[in-house]
Design a protein around this nucleic acid. Structure first.
Lengths: 126, 126
DNA sequence: ATCTCTGCAAAGGCTTTGCACATAG
DNA sequence: CTATGTGCAAAGCCTTTGCAGAGAT
């Protein structure tokens, strides 16, 4: 049976508080504010468990280790700023993706990652 | 100055022959048919060099190590079969991606990864 | 002959695992 | 009390690097 522990609480709180994709290291750092002796292995174990329960999902940027994010009801895509390396969540979804695949393929999911410059990096003065 | 070696030839041939994203391991295995003593480090070095020359580019599937593919002139997207793990190249490109980002963001690139079942896996009999 | 490239093995990241102790139920 | 969860350290991937020798020019 699954137990409720201080560590898991802290980890889940971090995902809840930051509403964006976080790396295991970021999670560790933040969760340690509440649970100082927390170990990285526990973070990985918690992430894996939450992911397989479908409560967390991975967001990957080409060439980087995955970051994880709370699944909310909605489906969205991301924008990766090439300058500050932050990932932003976008509203809305592309349509007409069906026309990209030849006959016979069955689309069950899709991911879209936009990249470029975020407003802050685009306009550094002010 | 850059030298022409049997190893690099073999590696480039592999990318040319398979017209799809390949992992370093796959490249090693195939290139060794022609250059048996080829080492994995050499494959990585060649990939890195070709990538920074802009002749090869990385394709990443969430949670997997990157695969690399020859850059041809055109831009395309991919379909990842959840059953056989193969990656297929797609023709065409989504449009209207601009509407996904709020004002102030500058889109410089995008990646789309569709997933599901390829024709072969969808219809295993025959 | 020179200077780059290669193979090998060692070293580096990130992630997972083994194990004894801690602790929720 | 008992079985799951945790921290630590070790082990496992994948990728990069150091180095001496091989090979292209």
């Amino acid at each position: 049976m699954e137990r409720r522990t201080a560590q898991r609480e802290s980890i889940q709180q971090v995902f809840a508080r930051f509403n964006r994709p976080l790396s295991p290291q970021e999670v560790l750092k933040e969760a340690r504010r509440r649970t100082p002796r927390l170990g990285l292995a526990t973070v990985y174990r918690a992430i894996r468990a939450l992911e397989s329960e479908g409560r967390l999902h991975a967001v990957t940027i080409s060439g980087q280790s995955p970051r994880y994010e709370w699944c909310d009801a909605s489906h969205h895509h991301y924008f990766h700023c090439a300058a500050c390396d932050q990932v932003f969540k976008l509203e809305g979804c592309a349509d007409n993706l069906d026309r990209l695949v030849p006959k016979g393929f069955k689309i069950e999911g899709h991911e879209i990652m936009l990249s470029g410059k975020c407003p802050a990096c685009r306009n550094p003065r002010r």
